[in-house]
Design a protein around this nucleic acid. Sequence first.
DNA 1: CCTATGCAAATACACAGACATAAATTACTT
DNA 2: AAGTAATTTATGTCTGTGTATTTGCATAGG
Lengths: 233, 233
Amino acid sequence: MSAQKNMGFQDIRDEVLNRIQTRIWPQGSLLPTELELAAEFGCARATVNRALRELADEGIITRRRKGGTRVVTTPVKQAKLPITVVRQTIEDMNAEYRYALVSRNMINCPPWLQAKLGLQEGAQVLHLNCMHHADNRPFQFEERWINTDTVPHVVDQDFLTVGPNEWLLSEIPFSNAEIAFSAVPATGQLQEFLSVPPGTPLFQLERTTWFQNKPVTFVRMTFHQGYQMRTKY
Amino acid sequence: MSAQKNMGFQDIRDEVLNRIQTRIWPQGSLLPTELELAAEFGCARATVNRALRELADEGIITRRRKGGTRVVTTPVKQAKLPITVVRQTIEDMNAEYRYALVSRNMINCPPWLQAKLGLQEGAQVLHLNCMHHADNRPFQFEERWINTDTVPHVVDQDFLTVGPNEWLLSEIPFSNAEIAFSAVPATGQLQEFLSVPPGTPLFQLERTTWFQNKPVTFVRMTFHQGYQMRTKY
DNA sequence: CCTATGCAAATACACAGACATAAATTACTT
DNA sequence: AAGTAATTTATGTCTGTGTATTTGCATAGG
């Protein structure tokens, strides 16, 4: 039963997870203390601590000082979906990637966008329309607005060969973002550039990006008909 | 510059992240060794190790034995989106949740589903159609298939008052899943139950769930018109 | 020029001890 | 009874040390 030897923190993590899954430690119940577990598994408390901390990070258990460690009652699973650039997505499908700039203009920031980019009325933003193709078939239409206050040298970029997504990723590599997924009907330029009948349901991803709490860009990426975004957890 | 005192691993993590963001340590460059950083920050190597490990977990840096620690060239950010039960989503909007079972049948597992649920031809599955309302307006239509081999006592459940989502979450709390998001047109019962015109673009989430490597259930959740799924990273 | 092998460097993990911190419990006061 | 202060306890973190493991690199052999 007790004092097994040569247990790494991963073994302990897995064993604890197993006891939770098999309801030896049911939902809401209190686990033994780190000290007790260390004694049972024959290891240092720090090792148990790391095992439990990982489970806590995954949302399987909650931990409070003095309160001890509990199995969560209603686990909130977190789907992790990797955000890559379109080119990567397409090349991972063994398809040929092609990028095309549709339009590039400085415009007055539209009212609905002012709040998102933290701009005042009358401020100028760089507005881009781009197409991403996979094996010469439309893959994604990208409409983007860039805050030229936060990224001044963006005005020197023509975006003819490299897309704004990749350029920004190399300029502002480590940013924060807020994402919204939805289903939209194909209208206007979407319908045209993705070559689908009007009203076709399309998967759309909107993203606002910040760098050090300053808004950088808002992008609306609309995918070809039938696109599925996949992930595991 | 060096030998600051009283630095916790979080301070070190933040300071390293800051140096990466400000390109003191540019993308692709090699960081000092743990020992050197420990000397600079005036702390133990283990503390530096933990700070760097967290950054590595976040995908900011990569670490290799003997190879050292490098800033990643193209960071792959992971958006974490919390998967909760519909009732939670609705109650978080301060709306009134209502659940209704539409149909409940044992059926032959359709061919397209056999692989997903790891079943042979002719196997029976429990098939459910459910509606979730928010403030008496259609919110989500749920179509679900449950593997009765993996969850035998599901056949005793009538699912009249509690939805299969919540029931399964309490039965099989800690499971793995694969998720796919897409945009689909409203047809047939979708159109009917979500009360939208035919062809309306709808946001759909498909999920296959396993418990200890055994397929449990496949679900197709279709949301009301205009629904957006949001997350940050 | 290519490959196998051995060494060294850097991270990965572990341990025991210590102190810090938050919170549940208890004791005490009003 | 209610509020407050002291105590206790489990987790959070740090340290210094030690061992294990991976792998880059150099060197030797074919």
